[in-house]
């Protein structure tokens, strides 16, 4: 197992008005991991993310980055935020400029990089998110999906080691969600650690290699996605449903189309491959 990169230890957090948002949260994130945090609305996913790069400060407990407690001094926070980037759910509350180019250059400029490097990074981010043709368009004339991609580019340009996506596919059409998943794959291959929150059980199941389920500000389960989805009581408690792949698999097993020993399919291809052709069965 690779080294730990981010860790939450006994995290407790309440909003200033007293609402308890996180209770006793413990979570380990390994370097290069694809972690999905699954939970219904209001489960505390976004609040937890804000802890990971020091925007919210826990009431008790700590966040560790590469094994060390993070510091809340200005300088240290900037160092941390350079390493841990967040793409927020609503691009309309992340994009502050009407110019795509200006918005993307904001992050890298804050890192104190020289202008040439900023330009280079911004260009690369535009290419990676396929937004090069949007560079000269004003933000308000972009579609929701385009805005979303630009907001991702703004974080990519900072080249963080850990990228957190809050509900990244909410509001994207199927084509753009698919493209987004490809981008995630590419980032993973580059060695980035990726955390994403979602309430899309299918996405969480097939994409992640680790999964955490949140409910009511707590992490009620953390582990291998296949194993977690085999525990119906957790899925039920978290107000979630089973991924269609797993439901289909268990249905096929139950009705005798598949032997009970068939491993859980991770992709639709896995599932389809495991279903025998009708002739084989009859013969």
């Amino acid at each position: 197992m690779s080294e730990l990169i981010l860790e939450a230890v006994d995290l407790e957090y309440s909003y200033p008005d007293g609402t308890k948002a996180l209770r006793n949260v413990n979570l380990q994130v390994h370097k290069g991991e694809k972690l999905a945090i699954l939970g219904s609305n209001g489960a505390g996913k976004s609040t937890l993310f804000m802890q990971f790069n020091g925007i919210f400060r826990p009431n008790s407990g700590t966040i560790k980055y590469q094994g060390e407690d993070i510091s809340y001094k200005n300088k240290a926070l900037i160092e941390l935020r350079k390493k841990v980037g967040i793409v927020f759910q609503d691009p309309d509350s992340q994009l502050f400029s009407a110019s795509v180019w200006q918005d993307i250059s904001f992050g890298p400029l804050n890192l104190g990089l020289p202008e040439e490097v900023v330009i280079e990074r911004a260009k690369q981010a535009l290419i990676d998110t396929e937004t090069t043709d949007l560079e000269d368009k004003p933000t308000h004339l972009l579609s929701y999906g385009q805005k979303k991609r630009v907001s991702i580019a703004g974080v990519l340009a900072m080249e963080p080691d850990v990228i957190i996506f809050d509900e990244p596919t909410a509001g994207l059409d199927p084509r753009h969600s698919k493209e987004f998943m490809l981008l995630l794959e590419k980032l993973s291959l580059e060695g980035k650690t990726i955390i994403l929150s979602t309430h899309d059980v299918d996405l969480a199941y097939f994409w992640s290699d680790k999964m955490a389920i949140m409910f009511g500000g707590e992490i009620i389960a953390h582990g291998d996605p296949g194993e977690l989805f085999r525990r119906p009581e957790i899925v039920k408690q978290a107000d979630l449903t089973l991924p269609w792949l797993i439901e289909m698999h268990s249905e096929l097993v139950q009705k005798g189309w598949l032997p009970p020993s068939t491993p859980l399919p991770k992709t639709r291809e896995d599932l389809f491959r495991s279903i025998p052709a009708k002739n084989d069965k009859a013969g």
Partner: peptide, 23 residues
């Protein structure tokens, strides 16, 4: 929205001044 935007900018290392590159 203004609080959300502030959080989002802080996440991108905003420290009081909005600096951007212009075309």
């Amino acid at each position: 929205k203004s609080q959300e935007l502030y959080n989002a900018l802080a996440a991108r290392c905003y420290s009081g001044e909005i600096r951007v590159l212009t075309k």
